[in-house]
């Protein structure tokens, strides 16, 4: 009985602690449901904390004032291509490094591993000159995703994972007469699902929030990612905090959804990110 009480108490405490920690996010949600003029109004009574009755109008207003749907599509396209196409490209390369004969493979791999430390920020300017100025890819999806398709870090992680798997299955397929391409797609890729999912979740998080590169590569309000869109909406007169908060909530939802579905892999991705063995 006593221990049960203790548990309930711990739960309540944790709930309170969690609420305090999440206060800024809850405040965002609350403000998105208030009439504009009340967002910045000083609090005088407790019941002002709850946005009652909720004002969904702010959300509708976002759609009325800017092309939110298109912005969402750009973000989804940008992130989606990187996650899906990039994953296959990186996994294929990792597989070749882990299992196949490559002329100069060890040296090549050392070079790839060394590329991990080059921060994207140091490449942003020349990439802009290459893709934006000379390549004419400003305000286009390829301009956004091209630099991110191949990732040395993912190649490294996935290769480690392949190396940790026993080769028996692939050898069995080989003896049965399968080509390396078939083995990669039918045998190896399904086996690597955990590490691929981990990389996919991390990449989704990273690029959904991406700010600098889209800021550089777009200069038209009708072609921008959600994060940029928020930046613009935030300064779009007349400034209406309710709408801004509604925009913020909608910009966050897709990540929350991905998190809800892939939570399991996310913990694993943390383990791989942390151990990097």
């Amino acid at each position: 009985m006593n221990s049960r009480l203790r548990q309930i108490a711990a739960c309540v405490l944790a709930l309170l602690g969690g609420l305090v920690f999440l206060f800024p996010l809850l405040w965002m949600l609350r403000s998105s449901l208030l009439p504009h003029d009340q967002v910045l109004r000083a609090l005088t009574a407790w019941r002002q904390l709850l946005p009652w009755p909720p004002r969904w109008e702010n959300y509708a207003e976002v759609f009325r004032r800017v092309a939110f749907a298109r912005t969402l599509l750009v973000s989804l396209g940008f992130t989606g291509v990187i996650v899906v196409v990039g994953m296959v490209i990186n996994a294929a390369c990792a597989y070749a490094f882990a299992r196949l004969r490559l002329p100069g493979g060890d040296l090549l791999f050392a070079v790839v591993a060394a590329l991990i430390i080059i921060p994207f920020e140091a490449l942003a300017l020349p990439l802009f000159i290459m893709l934006g100025v000379h390549g004419g890819l400003m305000n286009s999806l390829p301009g956004l995703f091209l630099p991110y398709l191949a990732k040395a870090f993912n190649i490294f992680l996935i290769r480690q994972y392949f190396l940790s798997l026993p080769a028996e299955l692939e050898e069995a397929a080989r003896v049965e007469g399968a080509s390396w391409f078939r083995i990669f797609f039918q045998v190896a890729l399904p086996l690597a699902k955990p590490v691929l999912a981990a990389c996919a979740v991390l990449d989704f998080m990273l690029h959904w929030s991406e700010y600098l590169w889209p800021l550089i590569m777009t200069n038209r309000p009708d072609f921008e990612t959600i994060q940029l869109g928020l930046g613009h909406f935030y300064t779009l007169p007349p400034i209406q905090w309710g709408g801004i908060m509604a925009y913020s909530v909608m910009a966050t939802l897709p990540m929350m959804l991905v998190f809800a579905f892939f939570q399991r892999y996310l913990v694993l991705s943390m383990a791989t990110a942390g151990l990097k063995q």
């Binding site: 026993p166 028996e168 069995a172 397929a173 003896v175 007469g177 399968a178 045998v187 086996l191």
Partner: peptide, 20 residues
């Protein structure tokens, strides 16, 4: 000659069955 064309079959210690 690559494995697939040698007309041999192999049984592995850990069975090596394709899980899916």
């Amino acid at each position: 000659i690559p494995p697939g064309r040698r007309n041999v079959a192999m049984v592995f210690q850990n069975y090596a069955l394709f899980p899916p």
